[in-house]
């Protein structure tokens, strides 16, 4: 298990070739109270940087970008009914996807926890 972070304020918890992804507590705080989450379905493939979902808060809509190239194994469908969970537990229960990583090399360009903390400091 290893934790990675992106400049778009997403986290990836990597276990083998599967990554669980979500947005960071910092991102959730900046967004404000989340009222709507739209996710793609399991089975869809995407390239790193593709838009793979939308989070809307009381303030604005924000896109979710694919942190790495891969395929959606599972989407957290519970978020459709409980979008506020993104504010309550962004780095645990309110994960967005479990994805199968196509190219583990892409992980090397992401940040570790210390680097991410520096970014948002």
């Amino acid at each position: 298990m290893a934790l990675y972070y992106t400049e778009d304020h997403e986290w990836l918890d990597v276990d083998g070739d599967i990554a669980t992804i979500g947005i960071t507590a910092h991102a959730a705080e900046q967004l404000g109270e989340v009222v709507f989450v739209e996710l793609k379905d399991a089975g869809e493939s995407f390239e790193q940087g593709d838009e793979i979902g939308v989070v809307e808060s009381v303030k604005a809509a924000s896109e979710i970008y694919a942190p790495v190239t891969g395929e959606i194994m599972e989407a957290n469908e519970a978020l459709a009914d409980t979008p506020a969970n993104v504010n309550e537990s962004p780095e645990s229960d309110a994960w967005f996807y479990k994805i199968k990583i196509a190219d583990a090399g892409e992980l090397e360009k992401l940040m570790d926890e210390a680097a991410y903390k520096d970014l948002i400091a």
Binding site: V35, F36, E38, E56, A60, A80, P83
Partner: peptide
């Protein structure tokens, strides 16, 4: 009133 939960801004 939009159906569903997505805001139309």
């Amino acid at each position: 009133l939009p159906d569903g939960r997505a805001p139309a801004r």
